[in-house]
Write a protein that binds this DNA or RNA. Structure first.
Length: 630
RNA sequence: GGGUGUGUGGCUCAACUUGGAUAGAGCACUGGCUUGCGGAGCCAGAGGUUGCGGGUUCAAAUCCCGUCACACCCGCCA
């Protein structure tokens, strides 16, 4: 892939500056990387690129920064792309040749189309992205939506930079929650009369109310005991309930355009004996202790001082050890996760069998682990990204440290806990147990959120004059609603807490998804009206130094933004970029007549086309389908 | 007690990892743009001691130390 226009301009500038430095200041110790790192984009009235390198050089050579900068700017040799250099306040500013640079950008977008912005920086590496891993006894709530759209978006971004991406969903069908739901199934006589996940979630709230009234610990212990035997009737019932619930949850997932490649079920992890294999390995490496007396008698632990060598945050923790396997033989969450990650990285053999669970409406099958089925190649990755609530940071750290302890530093490094902040309702948790996810009239569920958003979108879309046929209304309002919701969850830094409010979630103007979609639709219509046809070569002579060139410069830097988003696992880099791009296109649109642009019409249409293409590519990265009209 | 994170106009946030010229958006507020290619838009305005104190630096929202406030985590729960 050719390097992106902005990267090309940057590296040219770095070389020019370095040559100018070497010209008068022989022997000064500065490399191309130092110069590159000092380059940034100044306010547009100063130029198109700038470097602060003169401050550093000035210090090294005991000269004033201005003196050095003047030397650089007067000795800088223009190239085809960079034509002018000047000094201001110690900075060296450079001006791009707008015609040459525009041509470069426009031609690259036109040549690469939906691949524009992609790169091969992740080529040859496999990554497994785990999300949203919702317990199979309730509907997705708005917090799960955040998790899901983050996971989907990160997967898209990594794929765009050529990682081999596996989207995986972990289903815990053996936890306490499932035991409790099974108790409800056996003891509360209510029939499923609505979407199954919704019904199960409501029933679960009833079980918890019942638990406040009567002590059912004995019942639950008995159920848990029976669930240990995977062939017991209880186990089969639980799995059936879970599968039914997951089917309902997947309807939600697909409504949100969230897809996976494989689901790993906890009961199959047990069946495949991953835990035994992983613990045996850990034991062989000598990291496990089995105290015979004291506080941790008869359990299996990892001593805290060992962990703390690799997780400095845990130094000073009052606990002496972390329990891995309880004295009653039950594994803790950390043990299970350790085993699961041993599988992900191919450290222990997989004995999983897979079957097709459903055909997703994107045309791709979703596989799941099952008792029977065939062997397939999932896992064995270089990188595992876990989209998990920030509150589980402690456990994730311990699990990572365990890999460091057994000498698998590469695995420890490859486990990325993508910690996202909570979604709260007025500062209080969305609790599955208490039922705080249920509201008056509308629930804080993914289904209700989408329904509400669609309703609002429908009202606005129905005022649009550009849509004539009624059948488009529904699909367009659906897309607009999804754009609003997804954008709203992705535009904030992932670690920040979000206080959910209906008002904010249903935003259609300003810094929002629909604003970006609108810009895309508007650009599309201009191209239609202008009868734009993709030219064989672009003539950029009519590019001015106005809103047109500002827009072109931003288009040219898309690839850099994608790389940044991928490197830092930050979808909000893309949402930021989209807002900038939409805003610059709107300015260009307001200030420069496109179709009525006379001699400039042709190039302005080409700019419009490239803006549209880039908007579309960026929107797809965050899981929003670009609209042709709305 | 130990740890992690957050603190930026009235409100919601961005920029902090990698220090750079006048701290950016949106909402709300004031005023303007529609006989123009889609007004879900655009233009102009007002609003900031970046929690507080110190330090490093030519340069600090950004790095370091301290401090205050808030949130979360530290269980043989999951």
């Amino acid at each position: 892939m050719p390097s992106s226009p902005s990267a090309q301009a940057k590296s040219e500038f770095a070389e020019i500056v370095l040559a100018a430095v070497k010209f008068g200041f022989e022997g000064v110790e500065i490399g191309i990387d130092d110069v590159s790192a000092s380059i940034s984009i100044p306010k547009s009235e100063m130029g198109d690129l700038c470097t602060s390198i003169a401050f550093r050089l000035g210090k090294m050579m005991k000269k004033s920064p201005r003196e050095v900068a003047i030397h650089i700017s007067t000795n800088a040799k223009p190239t085809r792309l960079l034509k002018n250099f000047s000094e201001a306040n110690g900075y060296v500013n450079a001006v791009l040749d707008e015609k040459e640079y525009s041509k470069l950008v426009l031609q690259q977008v036109i040549a690469e189309k939906e691949c524009y912005g992609a790169s091969d920086s992740g080529k040859g590496k496999k990554v497994i992205v785990e999300f949203p891993s919702v317990n199979p006894n309730k509907p997705w709530h708005v917090g799960h939506v955040r998790n899901a759209v983050l996971g989907a978006s990160i997967s898209n971004i990594l794929k765009f930079v050529s990682f081999n991406v596996e989207r995986e969903d972990y289903i815990d069908d053996l936890g306490l929650q499932m035991a409790e739901s099974l108790w409800g199934w056996m003891n509360i006589s209510s029939k499923p009369d609505k979407k199954f996940d919704q019904w199960m979630g409501e029933q679960y709230v009833l079980v918890n109310k019942e638990m406040e009234k009567q002590n059912m610990k004995k019942d639950l212990d008995l159920i848990l005991k029976k669930l240990e035997n995977l062939d017991s009737e209880e186990s089969r019932t639980v799995r059936e309930l879970a599968e039914r619930c997951v089917r309902a949850q997947l309807e939600t997932a697909m409504a949100y355009g969230v897809y996976h490649d494989v689901m790993i079920w906890e009961s199959d992890i047990v069946r495949a004996k991953l835990l035994e294999k992983a613990l045996k390995l850990a034991d062989m490496k000598g990291i496990l202790d089995k105290p015979t007396d004291g506080k941790y008698a008869h359990s299996t632990v990892v001593k805290m001082h060992k962990i703390a060598r690799f997780a400095k945050e845990l130094i000073g923790n009052e606990e002496e050890a972390k329990v891995i396997v309880r004295s009653n033989g039950a594994a803790t969450y950390i043990a299970k996760d350790f085993a699961f990650h041993s599988w992900k990285f191919g450290l222990i053999d997989s004995a999983f069998r897979y079957s097709k669970f459903i055909d997703q409406d994107n045309g791709k099958p979703l596989y799941f682990t099952s008792k029977s089925g065939e062997e397939m190649e999932f896992g064995k990755v270089d990188l595992a990204i876990n989209i998990i609530d920030v509150r589980q940071k402690y456990e994730q750290q311990i699990m990572k440290a365990m890999f460091s302890l057994i000498g698998e530093e590469k695995i420890a490094e490859g486990i990325i806990h993508f910690a996202y902040g909570r979604v709260t309702i007025k500062g209080s948790d969305l609790s599955t147990r208490s039922g705080s996810w249920m509201g008056d009239g509308k629930n804080f569920t993914a289904d209700d959120l989408l329904r509400e958003a669609k309703e609002v979108a429908h009202k606005i879309v129905s005022q649009s004059e550009s849509i004539s046929d009624k059948s488009s209304f529904d699909s367009i309002s659906n897309s607009v609603a999804l754009a609003a919701i997804k954008f709203e969850f992705l535009k904030f830094a992932a670690e920040s807490e979000i206080v959910f409010s209906w008002d904010k979630a249903l935003t259609f103007e300003g810094d929002s998804g629909p604003y970006c979609s609108y810009t895309h639709a508007r650009a599309t219509r201009v191209l239609e009206k202008g009868a734009f046809e993709i030219p064989k070569s672009v003539d950029a002579d009519k590019v001015e130094r106005g809103a047109d060139f500002e827009l072109i410069k931003l288009i040219g830097s898309f690839n850099e933004m994608v790389e940044k988003a991928a490197r830092e696992y930050r979808p909000n880099v893309i949402t930021d970029y989209l807002l900038n791009l939409s805003s610059l296109f709107s300015k260009f649109y307001e200030k420069m007549p496109i179709i009525t642009g006379g001699e400039s019409k042709e190039v302005r249409l080409a700019i419009t086309y490239c803006a549209k293409q880039t908007l579309g590519n960026a929107l797809r990265l965050i899981g929003i389908e670009p609209l042709e009209r709305m």
